[in-house]
Design a protein around this nucleic acid. Structure first.
Lengths: 255, 255
DNA sequence: AGGCATTTGTCCGTATGTATG
DNA sequence: CCATACATACGGACAAATGCC
């Protein structure tokens, strides 16, 4: 079926090598159902025709994707898609990190990789409704689904209000449970801002992305039921591996 | 002030030319407050040092951004930022296209550029809860803020239910008013899916983007107050020009 | 006015990466 | 594998415009 979704979209003298443009197009096409039922891509010659380039150029693109672990090339048989599907990450008033990932990917986990007590600077202070310079707990974690890193998060918490949060985080490995152990039973998503940019070197290293790939960034504030912010987080999702699903709430008549 | 936000992040042999990586970094840095109060960038020599490249390479990057209309270079004086700010587009249960744009950019308009009656195929049919193959109205429009295109939308409507929608759209130039003229007084956002990918040639032409830049895509379903879908739309935002702001609704306890 | 530092603009040549056939 | 053409990146030198002393 669908194998001419991408067709054209490559240009020259753009500062982006043709082989990378084609690699990006194939990677994007895979999530929208490129490749037949067996996951077999069109032949190099066919792809070269579709994109209007030389077969060598297509080979460079495929070679890069094989290197990323997205494709597998078998001599005499063809080129095959390895991980065909894209994760859908829900954003709701009650978004819970680890739970959401686990629902779709079989083994979704969030792993704490570093932490620190720092002074809140502008963005963090305003988001958490604190004075600049007060101590906040900053944690970095990586979200994984089926052994593939799909996101990385930096989150900040008011250290004065939750002095023992870090130790709870380490034992429970869950923000929700750590909050509960700190006496906060429930919290809701207060605001979410979404932007997108090209992966930085850090993104590339930590999430195993390829240069030039896209990162979806959410800036989120969670608040307790009184509306006081308790967590500010910045999560970078690999746009090749996840979509964001916004749930604005019940769609019954609102009044 | 802030002029070393970007610092590093360029790599070689990646298939993406250094000048384009640097152009992307500068473009991204501008929205996070690069350049001093007067909008003056560091000199070409300084930038070259910061990025660890030759001055000529920085010049290529700047030249591309001047061409995009983002920077202005003046011999003997320096290089200056022209349009410093990024638009924030809100997504709520009651998102209204033209109104939202108009609030921030002074002159936000949505312009209809083409339309057609076509047969619904899979995505459209399932999103609108119709049978595949039934006639639907498809419209293409471009959203503009301050004479700069910031988004382009393709939207589909059930032709059987709203046979006169197109003529209403042409006269009112507003989906909300056209719905009202067709007897639908109110509607709410039912679902929103967000993804991101590299700009296609169409995106580049229609929105005046540069190759390799990023497009944020929202797939949205609007429904009447009985929950029946009335509009399915796919909007592509220039990620360099807009952020998406998610409003999940009141954050009082929900039960 | 002149002199000088700073900054962008233009030219040269050369090495390497990219793309074709 | 090979040869060829063009884009990219570097290094250096100098011109042109600006602003300040």
């Amino acid at each position: 079926m669908a194998s001419e979704i991408m067709l054209r979209g490559v240009g020259r003298r753009t500062g982006i090598a043709l082989w990378r443009q084609i690699a990006d197009a194939i990677r994007a096409g895979i999530s929208s159902g490129l490749g037949d039922e067996t996951g077999k891509l069109p032949s190099e010659t066919e792809l070269a025709e579709q994109f209007g380039v030389n077969r060598h150029t297509v080979r460079s693109a495929i070679s890069a994707l094989v290197n990323e672990g997205i494709l597998r090339a078998e001599q005499g048989r063809g080129t095959f898609v390895i991980s065909p599907s894209r994760l859908t990450y829900p954003i709701t008033r009650r978004t819970r990190f680890s739970a959401s990932l686990a629902e779709q990917g079989q083994r979704g986990v969030s792993r704490l990789i570093s932490h620190d007590i720092i002074e809140a600077h502008r963005d963090v202070a305003t988001s958490l409704d604190l004075e600049e310079g007060v101590p906040v707990l900053q944690i970095n974690s990586v979200g994984t689904s089926d052994d593939t890193p799909v996101s990385r998060t930096t989150a900040w918490f008011d250290h004065a209000r939750f002095p023992d949060l870090l130790s709870h985080l380490k034992t429970t490995n869950s923000v929700t449970k750590a909050f509960a152990a700190s006496g906060l039973d429930d919290y809701v998503r207060q605001s979410t801002l979404i932007e997108a940019y090209h992966a930085t070197l850090d993104d590339i290293e930590i999430m195993g992305l390829s240069p030039g790939s896209i990162v979806l960034v959410t800036h989120a504030v969670n608040a307790d039921l009184d509306g006081r912010p308790v967590e500010y987080s910045k999560t970078r999702f690999s746009a090749d591996r996840v979509n964001l699903q916004i749930e604005l709430g019940s769609n019954a008549a609102e009044d």
